[in-house]
Structures are given as C-alpha cells and as structure tokens.
C-alpha cells in the first residue's frame, strides 16, 4: 500500500530550480533514507510534503489523497525538524512541549508519559525545555511527533550538530519504531553509513532524483556511489 506518492514534483525559487521532476513513492513500513548534498532540495521537498510550501508543480498524494485538496493527512504525520527553533527562555517543561503536539486524548498526561518512555526520556519530563542538550532536545521533538500515533514519521536531518553517542541512541530509537511498531519513516541525512544500516529504501536527491530503490542495491553498486559522490562534489564546488 502506497502511503506517499509524489509525481513530477518541480519547485523553483525565482526561476532557479530547487527540485526538478521528482518522482517516488513510499509504502507502509518503509524506512526511506533521503540522501543528497547541502542545497540538494531535501528541505524543500519536505516543505512541499508538509504543506509549508504551496507553490510547486506536480502532485503529492498522502494516503491516496492530493494534499492540495485537504490538510487532513497532517493528523497522521509526525515531523521532526532539522534544528528546533524556539525561544530558549520559553517557560515550558518537556511534558508541556510534548502535550502541545497532542490533539485529542482521554488521558493526556498518561499518553505523554508513555510517549516519553518510548524515546527514553521519561526522567526529563519536568525539566524546562531550554535546559536540555541537543541530543535530548531531538528526542523530545521525536516524542512530540509521535504523541498522536502517526502513520508516517518525517525527519529532516535530525542529528545535525549532535554528539556521536546521542546519534547512536537516536538511530536505535528510529530502528525500534520501524521494526517493532511498523512505523513508516522518511528521513533525510548526510550520514551515509547510518542510512546504509537503517534504511531499507534510499532516494538520492540532487535537485533531481537520480536513484530511488532498495538500499542494498545502492550501497553495493560502486558506479552509483561514485555518481553520488561526484554529484555531491559538483554541488559543493558550485556553492563555493
């Protein structure tokens, strides 16, 4: 069953193409790693998928429905941003922040507690949000994304600037969510090693999609890996 279906997605900013003719789909239970250099269009792709960017060409369907017609699909999607931006003095506890994401539930406190346990930060529940480290913060934002029991979790380079120990913990949580709870995950990352370990599908993006398929096929194909590194290098040179 296709949960996400993207056809001919093209986005331009003042006539500069950010994405061109991107096509891919995501099925139930997939763990899709989206890789690509900086400026490849990963965040733009997510912005379109999440309804934050409206002026794109092509079609994006979630749960078989065009997202231009209804925003209802967002109730089944959890999102973890690249770097959570918020006022550092914001006077809210971890529990309160996670509860903000919760729509309707008979016992909100119990649901929040269970979600915090799911990402191993139950003991941080009463800490003020601004006092947490980068790794702890990202787990809070995962909890916030999970609190409504979404069917799809979208993560935009969630471990940028996080220490390696926290990264491993974060990956372990993602693996558990995908394997044990059959949660569909779409995750953009620069960490090819982690993508190779965790994702069962890979999409290589560099304004256009030059590979989409089984993860093993990509990582065992020298020619594809070479093409990926060359295109990343070109993008890097272009930016400098």
């Amino acid at each position: 069953m296709k949960l996400v279906d993207i056809k001919n997605l093209t986005v331009d900013f003042d006539r500069i193409l950010a994405l061109q003719d991107v096509n891919f789909s995501v099925s139930k239970g997939d763990f899709l790693g989206i890789i690509g250099p900086n400026g490849a269009g990963k965040t733009t792709l997510f912005s379109c998928m999440l309804g934050l960017k409206q002026n794109f060409k092509g079609e994006i369907k979630f749960f078989d429905k065009n997202i231009r017609k209804s925003k209802q699909y967002l109730t089944k999607v959890g999102y973890v941003p690249q770097k959570p931006v918020f006022e550092k003095n914001f006077p809210a506890t971890v529990k309160e922040v996670v509860k903000m994401g919760l729509r309707k539930h008979s016992d909100k406190d119990d649901k929040v507690d269970r979600t915090l346990q799911q990402v191993w930060i139950h003991e941080l529940g009463l800490r003020r949000i601004g006092e947490l480290s980068g790794g702890q913060l990202q787990r809070v934002f995962i909890a916030k994304a999970l609190v409504n029991d979404p069917q799809i979790l979208i993560l935009d380079e969630p471990v940028t600037g996080i220490d390696s120990q926290s990264k491993e913990l974060f990956y372990e949580i993602l693996r558990g969510l995908n394997k044990n709870e059959n949660l569909t995950i779409i995750w953009s990352s620069h960490d090819l090693e982690a993508v190779a370990k965790l994702a069962n599908k890979v999409a290589c993006l560099n304004r256009t999609l030059f590979f989409h398929g089984i993860s093993n096929e990509f990582f065992s194909n020298e020619a594809l890996l070479k093409q990926y590194s060359e295109s990343s290098m070109q993008m890097h040179m272009h930016q400098h």
């Binding site: 999440l50 309804g51 967002l74 109730t75 959570p84 903000m100 994401g101 729509r103």
Partner: peptide, 15 residues
C-alpha cells in the same frame, strides 16, 4: 496559542 507561540512551523505542520 501556546503551540503557535512555541514554534509556528511545527504548529502549522500539526494542522
């Protein structure tokens, strides 16, 4: 109100 104050983008994504 509190969610929008905390982070507008995330609040938008939450519908």
């Amino acid at each position: 109100l509190s969610y929008t104050t905390f982070n507008e983008e995330q609040a938008k994504v939450s519908g």
